[in-house]
Design a protein around this nucleic acid. Structure first.
Length: 291
DNA sequence: AAAACGTGGTC
DNA sequence: TGACCAAGTTT
């Protein structure tokens, strides 16, 4: 079972969103920044911040010169702010060890902080037009349905997932890279998690899920992430105070965001450990590297 | 290998 | 309204 590349490529050419990191003039650095920002964060929230970042830090070396605090503040409310710190560290590594050029090699990319199996291949494919399987949550869902005839993807298995997608890719490097983007776009726009728009699907006729009678997902239940009341929420509240000020603040300013002192202090400590917050000699708190 | 890690929109 | 979901990585 394989999906007709031409159908998907034609659909992509007609339907794909005009995203700034897909423009021909976008640099590899721009692609890398987009991929990090898009980890678990929707396109609509990434786009404006991406524009700000590329205008402010058009190259890895430009970002390498910024302070960690500047980067964390500019990250705003994209979420998972450790990504900002890791991207800053990656920028420094690229500037210092790779002549300010984003690496093309998957294994070299994998060695950079914050770059994992997905992002390394996304950069190789989308920034450099290489043929290599790019597997994200969209692609896993599309493959689970269209190829395996399941209702949804089961638990991830990097090795098997890469192999599944590798088998689908067209021979030609450039075509394979566009095909990878098309697979993701199909999952994002048509083959969605809830209420897939099968009537609009370019590979409807070849879809194993359709041919299989659209069975429901039968894999293990997916764990739902709680947020309210968790350390994640409290860390977010604490960091939000610091994002809003340039001057270091007294602990009392942080204490007001959460009533449970034990949880509050544990979270502040974890932020310090993560390097997202620093304490000044005077005992005040601030974003890192700005004082 | 499961769990931690932000934030906001949607149905 | 609250569960589910969003271009994952790290430990």
């Amino acid at each position: 079972m394989s999906l007709d590349a031409e159908l998907l490529l034609d659909w992509f050419a007609d339907t794909a969103r005009d995203l700034p990191w897909r423009r021909p003039e976008c640099t590899a650095w721009g692609v890398l920044v987009s991929e990090i920002m898009l980890q678990q964060t929707p396109v609509a929230r990434v786009e404006p911040i991406w524009h700000e970042w590329l205008a402010r830090w058009p190259t890895p070396s430009a970002m390498a010169k910024a302070s960690q605090g500047d980067v964390v503040r500019a990250w705003g409310k994209l979420g998972y702010p450790r990504r900002a710190l890791r991207l800053h560290a990656a920028a420094q590594a690229i500037a210092e060890q790779h002549d300010d050029v984003v690496p093309q090699d998957v294994n070299t990319l994998l060695a950079l902080p914050g770059i994992g199996a997905y992002t390394a291949r996304a950069v190789a494919a989308f920034a450099y037009g290489q043929k290599c399987p790019v597997v994200d949550t969209n692609v896993r869902r599309v493959v689970a349905r269209a190829v395996h005839g399941a209702g949804d993807a089961g638990p991830p298995s990097t090795t098997k997932d890469l192999k599944d997608v590798e088998a689908l890719l067209p021979e030609n490097d450039k075509a394979a890279a566009v095909y990878s983007a098309a697979l993701m776009e199909l999952g994002a726009l048509v083959c969605t998690a809830r209420a897939p728009k099968c009537a609009d699907c370019p590979v409807f006729d070849a879809c194993a899920w359709q041919l299989n009678g659209r069975p429901a997902y039968d894999g293990p239940a997916k764990a739902v992430q709680k947020f309210a009341g968790t350390d994640r929420q409290v860390r977010g509240l604490l960091l939000d105070v610091l994002r809003g000020t340039v001057e270091p603040v007294a602990k009392a300013r942080l204490d007001v965001v959460w009533s449970d002192a034990g949880q509050r202090d544990r979270c502040l400590h974890s932020l310090l450990t993560d390097g997202l917050v620093e304490q000044t000699r005077e005992g005040l708190f601030a974003l890192p590297g700005e004082h």
